[in-house]
C-alpha cells in the first residue's frame, strides 16, 4: 500500500504497459474522485457522469495498450483532457437530442415531447413578461423612464441619449442606474418573479 502511494503515475503507466494490471487499479483509485468530480461539475447528472467516466478510462486503456501514449509526466492532465472532450461530445449529442428533466419526481411525457404548442406557450410567457415589464417602466419617474426606453427599446448609446435629452453622459448613466434600481425595488415590493 505504501508503494501505491509513493509510486509516480509515470512508473505506474510503465508497469501497466509491462502487464502489471494492478498498476491500472492504483491509477484509477488515485485519480477517480478528481476526474469524476470534474465530469459531474460539467454535466450535473450522476448517470451521465458515470458513463463519461467509464468511456474516459476505456479510451485511456485503449490508447495505452496501443502504445500511443507519450509519457511526459502528465498522466492526470491527459486523462482530464479526454474527459473534457467526452463532455463536449455529450453536449453536442444532447444539442441534437435535447433532454428535458423535471424537478418533480412525477414523469410527464409532455415534458419530453416537443411540439408546436410548446413554443407557442413560451412565446405567450415571453409576451406576458414583456407586457409586465412595460407596465413597471410606466411607474418610473419621467426622466428615468425616458433614458431606459431609449437605451433598451431604441438601442441608443448613452452618448446619443445624452445629446437627445440635453444632459451629460454621466447624468444619463445615473438616470439609467436609478431606473434599474427602482425597477428592482418595485419587483421586490410586489414579489414579482419575471422568468422566461
Amino acid at each position: 500500500m505504501k508503494l501505491e502511494n509513493t509510486t509516480t503515475d509515470a512508473v505506474l503507466v510503465t508497469q501497466y504497459l509491462k502487464g502489471e494490471e494492478s498498476s491500472l487499479e492504483v491509477l484509477i483509485t488515485r485519480h477517480k474522485q478528481r476526474i469524476y468530480s470534474f465530469i459531474y461539475s460539467k454535466v450535473l447528472d450522476r448517470d451521465v457522469t458515470e458513463d463519461i467516466f467509464q468511456d474516459t478510462f476505456i479510451k485511456v486503456i485503449r490508447t495505452l495498450r496501443r502504445g500511443k501514449y507519450n509519457e511526459e509526466g502528465k498522466f492526470l492532465p491527459w486523462v482530464m483532457r479526454i474527459a473534457h472532450n467526452l463532455v463536449i461530445d455529450h453536449f453536442r449529442r444532447n444539442k441534437r437530442m435535447p433532454k428535458f428533466s423535471s424537478s418533480n419526481s412525477d414523469f410527464d411525457i409532455f415534458d419530453v415531447i416537443s411540439n408546436g404548442q410548446e413554443s407557442t406557450e413560451n412565446e405567450m410567457i415571453s409576451l406576458q413578461v414583456q407586457q409586465d415589464v412595460k407596465k413597471l417602466i410606466e411607474e418610473l419617474p419621467d426622466d428615468q423612464k425616458e433614458v431606459l426606453i431609449m437605451r433598451m427599446y431604441k438601442d441608443m448609446s448613452f452618448k446619443e441619449i445624452a445629446e437627445s435629452t440635453d444632459v451629460s453622459i454621466n447624468t444619463a448613466l445615473g438616470r439609467m442606474r436609478y431606473a434599474l434600481i427602482n425597477l428592482r425595488k418595485v419587483i421586490d415590493k410586489h414579489n414579482i418573479i419575471l422568468t422566461n
Binding site: 469524476y36 424537478s103 410567457i125 422568468t195
Partner: peptide, 16 residues
C-alpha cells in the same frame, strides 16, 4: 406571480 419555477436538485458527487 410565477411564470416558471424550477429548483435544481443538489447532489454531491461521491465518485464512481
Amino acid at each position: 406571480k410565477l411564470y416558471n419555477e424550477s429548483i435544481p436538485e443538489r447532489v454531491t458527487p461521491l465518485g464512481p
